[in-house]
Design a protein around this nucleic acid. Structure first.
Length: 269
DNA sequence: TTGTGTCCAACGTTTACGTCA
DNA sequence: AGTGACGTAAACGTTGGACAC
């Protein structure tokens, strides 16, 4: 059994869920995907062994609290901002537009007086490395690279190492740690979001309980209702018909859309 | 199909560094 | 100036998945 859980994201199919299960992109809320054991998913081209479609449940058709997202451009929280409209912290810090930014960055790296000298010499002879902080400019350049792609292939890693005068291993480690930091921060944000959701739902529950109590009180004051037998309402999700099962065992159905009660219609009367 | 080796991301931990009281 | 506590970032070790052979 495979379970995917998306908190607060606009519902979208999970990797193992096909196009047929798409939900409205306007909705926000909780999204769960369920894959039964025996379903097989292979890499990019998804093939399924089981004929039964997996489930994707949108548990909240509305989002009581807009879920904040860590802004990859700025490194702080952002809510419903245009992702490309923001000027990055790097650009803000160094006062430049995105155009030509790369050239300026490289120039700064080259002129950086504090060169991280824990270089390839140590790497080759396998001696232990003395830990040195990366310079601000090196960090800034890595941050920029991370915003463009948070994982590196070998080619990118080597290129970055060469540009920043660092060992490829350092680049690799930096990206690993950076991903860990991002994840940690997003987890914190998600926790806060869930906390607020919980509070909102608790309030809603309280309100509904109160409403129910009022309705029950109203019902006890109106003898007409008390004469009706106790019923259990169930709705068929596909045809949206409600079945009322009475305590005596009889049952009736009604169409939710039209509100028509067949047993009261002239044809049935 | 199974076994083996390689690569890499994720994760937890350790360690060095910087800051502050 | 020296020192210890603390937070952060760099680095390390392990594990497991994907992939090629």
């Amino acid at each position: 059994m495979e379970l995917a859980l998306s908190l607060g994201d606009p519902p979208k199919p999970f990797s193992f869920i096909g196009e047929t299960q798409k939900l409205s992109s306007n909705d926000l809320g909780f999204c769960m995907g369920l894959l039964r054991q025996g379903d097989a998913v292979y890499g990019g081209d998804e093939k399924r062994v089981s004929s039964d479609p997996p489930l994707q449940l949108d548990l909240l058709p509305f989002s009581p609290v807009p879920r904040p997202q860590l802004c990859p451009e700025r490194g702080w929280l952002a809510a419903a901002e245009e992702p490309n409209s923001a000027v990055s912290s790097f650009q803000m810090a160094f006062g430049m537009s995105r155009r030509g930014k790369r050239e300026v960055e490289l120039e700064m790296i080259e002129t950086d007086q504090r060169v991280n000298t824990r270089g390839s010499d140590d790497d080759e002879n396998g001696s232990t490395h003395k830990k040195l902080r990366l310079s601000q400019k090196q960090s800034a350049f890595l941050e920029e690279s991370f915003k463009e792609h948070n994982t590196l292939n070998t080619k990118q890693k080597l290129a970055l190492a060469k540009q920043l005068n660092l060992r490829p291993r350092q680049i690799e480690v930096w990206f690993q740690n950076r991903r860990a930091r991002t994840k940690l921060k997003q987890t914190e944000v998600d926790c806060e979001y869930l906390k607020r959701c919980c509070e909102t739902l608790a309030e809603e529950n309280k309100r509904l309980q109160k409403e129910l109590q009022e309705l029950r009180a109203l019902k006890s004051c109106q003898p007409f209702y008390t004469q009706l037998p106790a019923t259990t309402l169930t709705m068929c999700p596909s045809c949206e018909r409600v079945t009322t099962a009475t305590a005596s065992g009889s049952s009736n159905t009604t169409d939710v859309k039209t509100g028509e009660y067949p047993f009261l219609s002239p044809t049935n009367a």
